[in-house]
Amino acid sequence: MSGLKVNICGVEFKNPVITASGTFGYGLEYARFTDISRLGGISVKGISYNEVQGNLMPRIMETTSGMLNAIGLQNVGVHRFLKEKLPLLRKYDTRIIVNFWGKSIEEYVQVAEILDNADIDMLEMNISCPNVKEGGIAFGSDPAMTSKVVDQCRKVIKNKPLLVKLSPNVTDIKPFAKACEDNGADGISAINTLLGMAVNINTKKPYISNVTGGLSGPAIKPVAVRMVHEVSKVVKIPIVGMGGIIKWEDAAEFFLVGASAVQVGTANFVDPEIPIKIIDGLEKYVSEQKLSNISELTGKVDLSK
């Protein structure tokens, strides 16, 4: 397995396959369905300071090779998470990344400070959820705001590495990645969901009560690969790549364009064993390619004509 061992922002992962925030609950939900100790890591559902109930139903709809969701960041709040979920999750041999967000910079800082002192491995700041009005995306669609929220959180995050998760719903993702690096982020996660919409032609109503939702799944993979490639051109910090990964070949593509690890999201809904199949597939690929470690793939896309 050592061929898959990676070091991301100073944290060692036994393999580079992490389940993506919002698609793996608090991890515990999946314990019945797959061996979660085999995962490199788990990024838990986005946590805020207070408990949040989320958007009205319907919240999900399948689209061609993908799905729209507007869950609205429903979560139990940081205190209940630390008390009720984390101790149980810690029993598994996997890295815990906590995805977090706030409605204001103050809330981001408040949650970050609490998490920095908790028994977790890494923080992942979500500035890219398209489904809540306040917070989230407001900080991910203006580089000046991104700089500000990253800088303020960095000041209170003293013990843990900080990933910042970027939105694809921008004309150019590069200035956002740069803003994160310049303000002390240890790594970039990319991408979150793409803003989308679907309408029922019989009722003439949108399928999602929020009208728009975030598109995920295989449909978005080419966009995600392109964006990780762009981010890798402007930052030196590690990139955790995601968007539409459903098999190991997809994951390998992300490494080639510059990712040091990957996250698997919607695929968990399709089959909770997919992350493990991806780990097995990558391991085989690494040995077939005669690499000593998967990190040798990172950024090796051949752009020569």
């Binding site: 698609t23 609950g25 939900e29 369905f33 989320g54 139903m57 319907p58 919607t266 968990n268």
Partner: peptide
């Protein structure tokens, strides 16, 4: 019958 993505309690798409 609610629309379901995961069926396993993770996506929070089937809330009533």
């Amino acid at each position: 019958d609610e629309r379901m993505a995961c069926g396993m309690g993770a996506c929070l798409g089937c809330i009533i």
